[in-house]
Design a protein around this nucleic acid. Structure first.
Length: 826
DNA sequence: AGCACGCCGACT
DNA sequence: GTCGGCGTGCTC
């Protein structure tokens, strides 16, 4: 590029703004600037942001003078062409701003922004200039600490808005504001020790030991050296350098002796960059051979891949799907230079899989999810970009890693709706996005599940996906025996003990007698989901939300599960003063308490949101259960997620009806999946497991299908319903969620928007509807549902929808109503 | 997102 | 009057 030409760059900024912004490239950067690099630019009055360069051109903007790019942060693009294509697709499919996609895609540390800092200029005001109280307070604070952020000043003055004072202080010449770039990413360095090369031969070492032996005071040094040798050779292929603190710790904290050895040039100390994910030590082993069934599946998958992009692997629980994945990954890595993405719905599941994959693929395996800190994420990002990782395991956000050439994407547990991001926008579904990503890369996509989503099974039925089945559990393990308990009947006969039927209790006791474990599933946390006055029917509700309060016995509080506000439990009814308040319904906490009375002496643990808040809690409960420190595990749907235990004799579902009665078109599908998945936790090794389902409708067709493990029949019936009532996969849904703090405006604005939409889409518009929970955090809600037929003008309809929403957002009266768009809601 | 500007209710 | 909160519009 000639240095004379004036270049402009269109940037995506990490903000919810609808467009790209044009900046001028400083002449001296003409030769460096490339699409996909990050640039720091000023946006607005003073703020600095990192943008991604999307386009370089020579058209000077006519309506305004473009600002200059401040600096380029990269010497080569960090976002590649494939990713940009992917971002564009996501943005138009999910009706999200480009900046929102960028925010979801780039790790925070690659997205540095600026922070406003206030700096003291002079201690005393000039002649004739007077400071008011608050201004003086700020100056006093700055005398102590020379630099303050706006938030800190707001804290000092104890008020929300402080701009006014800062501006005034600038005018009075007292302070200066600076924009400080936040560089967050720091590679981590640590001291590593190795035996100095001049001694690191067997003969030399022996010589060294004999020298030390002669010195009576050298006992400690000999010990240290011996430990050093042991530690450095603990992994095959060693010696490897040893972390200094590790050696010191092994010597009982004796840092002095280590320092002496370093000073005497026996040990060599080097600062090295620590691989934050830890290096895989040892040798990788080949995948173990597949069973006959698995091998057949493996071959079928490969032959489908010859003509189709995607395959659905429908394998019953414990059929050994993972082993099939491992062989597929292995053949990709052996036969090509391509990368593999392995998507999992839950972060908690990644650690089990990582260890399994690392055994075979060692350091080619990288992990990525939102619980890693920014540094770790940035590191994984750059290793993926450099091709150092060949296999990436991760939750939904890992679809955004900078893959250069994907060969295979595995979406495990593809039916899980945690693949769908809800908040913040972009509200993308990682499974669907993965299919597109695969398309962009020319990669194959394998979806795996024991209970496929109706959508995916339909795609398989339509021959869009190949369909491969694993119908038997691995190693000849039998499917569990599933039995129903009619709790309506049991209640009539007075055979219920709190929420437990006699059968349930007997089976629990039997399992414990046999030294086996039990999992109990109740999809509600807390003690009791609502209280009711027996006299007048009053129910305590949240002040901010239209929700009944859940009683938590552990804290003796009523809690709103939507806005997390807690209340002291009332002693009397607030409406009529009656003392007759009754707790209705039950959650995991109540089950836990019941067990201590009904099955005395049993060791019970509870796994739900409340008990897994802290960092390792989830992992601790799981490993305690594995180590059999727990007899009975009570949990919410958290316990259904692909965990493998080998001593579970009984799985109990305490109330299947609460799942079936959920008012949503997916309720039956989801009930089937949930019950089948929990059931899958029962019975391992050489004993058939038992599943007991407590329900008031033992004849409900969904329960029947689960009992006889008839996924396909369930699918056939469900797909008929979907066709008849116009639901996915026969139509595509878009849900608009409207909210406003003003109750009188919400209904009106929703009506207006629905009417406008009807002009364009006619009967495809449903609603507005008042949702079940019509008020959350003091916002009133309405929803409008759009049902679009499948076909080529879907994208056009979405554009028309976008236009209407823009009109709505500009409407004089209704623009205060916030409208969120959710494409393919789950 | 963050910041300026302008409106409005509360307090002196 | 003045202060502080909050809604609204704009950012190359």
């Amino acid at each position: 590029v000639s240095e004379r030409i004036t270049l402009f760059a269109d940037l995506v900024l990490p903000l919810a703004v609808p467009r790209l912004y044009t900046y001028r490239v400083p002449l001296d950067l003409n030769d460096q600037v490339q699409v996909g690099m990050r640039a720091v630019v000023q946006f607005g009055k003073s703020k600095l942001h990192t943008g991604i360069i999307r386009k370089i051109h020579q058209q000077a903007p006519k309506a305004y003078e473009a600002k200059y790019i401040e600096t380029l942060l990269d010497d080569r693009p960090i976002v590649n062409e494939l990713q940009m294509k992917f971002w564009d697709w996501l943005s138009s499919y999910y009706l999200a701003h480009p900046g929102e996609i960028m925010n979801a895609a780039l790790p925070g540390s690659l997205r540095l922004g600026s922070e406003t800092k206030i700096v003291l200029l002079r201690h005393e005001p000039e002649e004739g200039i007077i400071l008011n109280n608050k201004e003086q307070t700020i100056i006093d604070a700055l005398q102590i600490q020379e630099i303050l952020s706006i938030a800190e000043i707001a804290g000092i003055l104890n008020q929300k808005t402080v701009q006014h004072y800062i501006k005034s202080l600038i005018d009075k010449g007292m302070v200066l504001v600076e924009e400080e770039l936040k560089f967050k990413y720091k590679p981590k360095f640590e001291n590593f020790l190795s035996i100095a090369p001049e001694w690191n031969e067997e003969e030399k070492l022996r010589e060294l030991f004999s020298i030390l032996e002669k010195d009576k005071r050298a006992g400690k040094r000999t010990e240290a050296l011996l430990l050093m040798i042991t530690l450095s050779k603990r992994y095959a292929g060693g010696p490897f350098p040893v972390k200094k603190p590790e050696l010191v710790k092994g010597l009982g904290g004796n840092a002095g002796v280590v320092e002496t050895l370093i000073k005497n040039n026996i040990l060599l100390s080097e600062k090295k960059r620590v691989d934050r994910l830890g290096k895989f030590e040892g040798e990788t082993i080949d995948p173990s051979p597949l069973s006959e069934q698995q091998l057949q599946a493996f071959n079928e998958i490969n032959s489908y891949f010859e003509k189709l992009q995607a395959v659905l692997l429908h394998g019953v629980t414990s059929s050994g799907k993972t082993e099939v994945y491992i062989h597929l990954i292995n053949s990709i890595l052996k036969n090509s230079d391509k990368q593999v993405l392995y998507l999992l719905p839950e972060i908690a599941l990644t650690s089990q899989i990582i260890n399994r994959l690392r055994k075979h693929f060692g350091d080619y395996v990288g992990v990525f999810h939102s619980k890693f800190n920014d540094q770790e994420r940035a590191e994984t990002w750059s290793k993926t970009l450099r091709g150092e990782y060949k296999i990436l395991i991760g939750a939904r956000s890992s679809i955004f890693l900078p893959f250069t050439q994907l060969g295979l994407i595995i979406v495990d547990e593809e039916h899980e709706n945690s693949f769908k991001q809800f908040d913040p926008s972009p509200r993308y579904h990682a499974r669907d996005a993965a299919l597109l990503l695969g398309n962009i890369h020319g990669a194959k996509v394998l979806l795996g599940s024991a209970t496929p989503s109706i959508e995916s099974y339909y795609n398989a039925e339509q021959n869009k996906f190949g369909l491969v089945q694993l119908t038997h559990r691995y190693g000849g393990v039998m499917m569990p025996e599933i039995q129903c308990v009619d709790i309506r009947e049991a209640t009539k006969k007075k055979k219920m003990h709190s929420h437990f039927s006699e059968e349930m209790l007997n089976h629990i006791k039997l399992a414990l007698e046999n030294n086996e474990q039990v999992i109990l599933f109740q999809n509600r946390r807390g003690y009791s989901p609502f209280w009711m006055c027996q006299t007048c029917g009053w129910v305590p509700k949240c002040r901010n939300c239209d929700v009944s309060l859940t009683y938590h016995k552990a804290t003796h509080q009523l809690q709103c599960h939507y806005c997390t506000t807690v209340y002291p439990p009332p002693k009397v009814c607030s409406a009529c003063g009656s003392h007759e308040l009754k707790m209705l319904g039950f959650g995991t906490e109540k089950i836990e308490e019941d067990l201590s009375i009904l099955v005395p002496g049993s060791k019970v643990a509870r796994m739900d949101l409340d008990t897994t808040r802290s960092k390792n809690a989830y992992h601790n409960i799981i490993s305690d259960f594995e180590d059999r420190k727990i007899d009975i595990l009570v949990g919410t749907q958290m316990i259904t997620k692909g965990l493998d235990f080998d001593n579970v004799a009984l799985v109990g579902i305490l109330n299947a009806d609460s799942l079936l009665n959920y008012p949503d078109f997916r309720a039956f599908e989801r009930s089937y999946q949930l019950i089948a998945q929990v059931s899958g936790r029962a019975g391992r090794k050489n004993k058939r497991g038992k599943v007991l389902i407590q329900t008031m409708n033992p004849n409900h067709w969904i329960i029947q299908k689960v009992m006889y493990n008839e996924y396909e029949n369930m699918y056939k019936q469900e797909i008929l319903e979907r066709r008849n009532f116009h639901y996915p996969p026969f139509v595509r849904l878009i849900r608009l969620t409207l909210r406003n703090k003003d109750q009188s405006l919400i209904g009106e604005s929703a009506q207006w928007l629905a009417q406008e939409l009807r002009k364009k889409f006619d009967i495809r518009v449903l609603g507005p509807e008042e949702p079940m929970i019509s008020r959350i955090r003091n916002y009133y809600y309405r929803t409008i549902l759009l049902k679009f037929e499948r076909g080529s003008n879907y994208q056009l309809m979405k554009e028309a929808l976008s236009d209407t929403i823009i009109d709505f957002r500009q409407h004089e009266k209704y623009k205060k109503t916030i409208c969120d768009v959710d494409v393919d809601p789950v």
